[in-house]
Nucleic acid binder design. Structure first.
Lengths: 346, 346
DNA sequence: CTGAAAGCGCTAACAT
DNA sequence: ATGTTAGCGCTTTCAG
């Protein structure tokens, strides 16, 4: 049995009795060349009969465009990242763009290599969900030099060098903490996600701003934690430190809902009643937060992904648009975990 | 300013004073051709200086292999899917394979088109996370005909036609329901995920098996629900039907933790105490389940993804391996939601 | 050990 | 309205 080679355009051309060019015109649906309906029919049919399948590698090679974007992210594990991806996918699938995935596994070196990989694949543009840190500036600038459009989601460190899509976390955190203050809390601690990512920094900033605006002097020991991705044991340890303070806090603001959930557990295990003895608030309005009746700030990761994808696809067309930073509004979601009697929808 | 074309291998060859062939040998690291260290050095340096970047489209075109696998899935939203993806990514990144993503958005037609898309991109193989249903058989067989390796995760409908990686859901569900029965429950209802997906069918089967083994006659009205992806309103409605039965259930087995979480909420809103008046158990051992102290069955989606990827990559090498179905073991996780006094770790 | 040459499958001037 | 032709950037016999 001879393994039959995959049919090429030339095969289709022969069978339809036309040139390869005509086949190309018809099959790639060019509207600018006029080709009689009869010819088109013959070609489609020949392609059908042969089981012809276009080769996008060849097409990409000659066109210099691949209809593919690269998506770079630390890992595909948190639901926040997954939902951003879902938004990106939704837009890309609808606009017939493909998505090539690349993860950095939270490693700056790998991140840089993955960018190279995406470039070798000649992606038309890149969306990066967060970045590994300052070091990422190297490849951000590389992309700019090479003219490869880039949109960064949930990180504004490189604002001005690339488009970005973020949510207004300074304000969000501030609203949250002001709410706690209004409820009478004065000793409010912050389970932070460190200073590497802008989202984490912004939330800490909003926290400090709220305290200061109310004349509460923030204490150094009130802020602990260094990443959204601390291992569970580390989170628990940090929470314990926070709760074991000589003057124990009456409220805890966690940098996201997952951290808040973990804090809730630790507190419960320590016999601390929530919200009676400790108010806990999170950030992000995730499923976990909903199930735990956590007061939080709403974020819409899927929407962030959609907006980022739309922005990128648009920039693929209009190359000269000025770079901008799209800031999504935030809003407070009050639930039981902070002991407030006020209720909002959802 | 002249826009300089991207440097090609030929440019590197000229600069290094060798032929393109030699450059190709050196840059693609072929061990079988002997090339003096001096020449290699010159070539590497020339490439460096020119900022040469290989073009994987061209390479893929001539090689007929792309070092890329396609991953097909309904949507990138549930954390279950995200974790499977994470496992796949981990293995692929480590083995220097790329991942091209394709989602079907829960639509059989789109799914078939996405398979075509992946084929047009000449992916070396495909992993499908679940499938849209019976109709997917068409493309499953297409891939087989075309010799494109396929691994299906969390679905064994096409067992025998493609490799698959699933968990032992019949047993898992059975263990869960038997546990409830041991606790004294007799009226146990099932919030089902329908019959389209094998995982959903298997859990229902395990449920029925457990009842029958204990001489409990399952009633038709005890089983409600038709998908893992019902909108929240639909879930709530179904749960209410289940709880409103003339003879109300004392226990509810939900097809996964998310459904169980939703059921928990509905029950609470109805003033039903959990676990005192209603035991609730889920499936999957997700974060949500953990936070809600849900009794459940452990699954490891990341591991499923890793195994699927390893299997696929291996099959890319050894083409003739017989197709098999890899079944992962399950185990019960007892927590508070079922009112059991027994505790297991985590 | 290195090079010349023939494609891989497709597109896009440029004819006709 | 369709065909001719020249690549896109790379790999791979086959010669030397």
């Amino acid at each position: 049995m001879t393994t039959r080679r995959k049919p090429s355009m030339l095969d289709v051309a022969k069978r339809a009795g036309v040139s390869q060019t005509t086949v190309s015109y018809v099959l790639s649906g060019r509207k600018d060349v006029v080709i009689p309906e009869a010819t088109r029919k013959r070609i489609w049919q020949a392609a059908q009969e042969l089981g012809y399948r276009p080769n996008s590698l060849a097409r990409g090679l000659v066109r210099g465009k691949t209809q593919t974007i690269g998506v770079l992210m630390p890992r595909m594990d948190s639901s926040f990242h997954a939902l951003i991806m879902d938004g990106i996918q939704e837009v890309c699938t609808a606009q017939d763009y493909r998505v090539l995935l690349a993860d950095s596994r939270h490693n700056a070196d790998l991140e840089a290599r993955q960018v190279e990989m995406l470039l070798e694949h000649r992606v038309d543009g890149i969306i990066s969900i967060a970045v590994a840190g300052e070091a990422s500036g190297d490849w951000v600038r590389l992309l700019k030099r090479e003219g490869v459009p880039l949109v960064i989601v949930d990180e504004h460190t490189f604002e001005g060098e690339a488009d970005c899509v973020i949510s207004d976390d300074v304000l969000g955190a501030r609203l949250l903490v002001e709410h706690l203050i209004q409820l009478g809390h004065r000793r409010i601690v912050h389970l932070s996600a460190g200073t590497e990512m802008s989202a984490a920094r912004d939330r800490r900033t909003g926290y400090l701003l709220a305290l200061q605006a109310s004349g509460i002097e923030p204490r150094e020991e009130w802020i602990r934690g260094d990443s959204f991705f601390m291992p569970v044991e580390r989170i628990r340890q940090v929470v314990e430190e926070l709760l074991d303070l000589p003057e124990p806090p009456t409220a805890l603001f966690a940098a996201n809902d997952d951290l808040a959930a973990e804090a809730t557990h630790v507190a419960r295990e320590l016999g601390i009643a929530i919200p009676a003895q400790l108010a806990v608030v999170g950030y992000g309005n995730t499923e976990v937060g909903r199930h735990l009746q956590l007061t939080t700030v709403h974020q819409d990761p899927r929407l962030m992904g959609q907006i980022a994808a739309r922005r990128l696809l648009r920039r693929l067309q209009e190359t000269e648009m000025p770079v901008k930073c799209i800031v999504l509004p935030t809003r407070l979601i009050v639930r039981e975990s902070c002991g407030s009697s006020l209720k909002t929808q959802n």
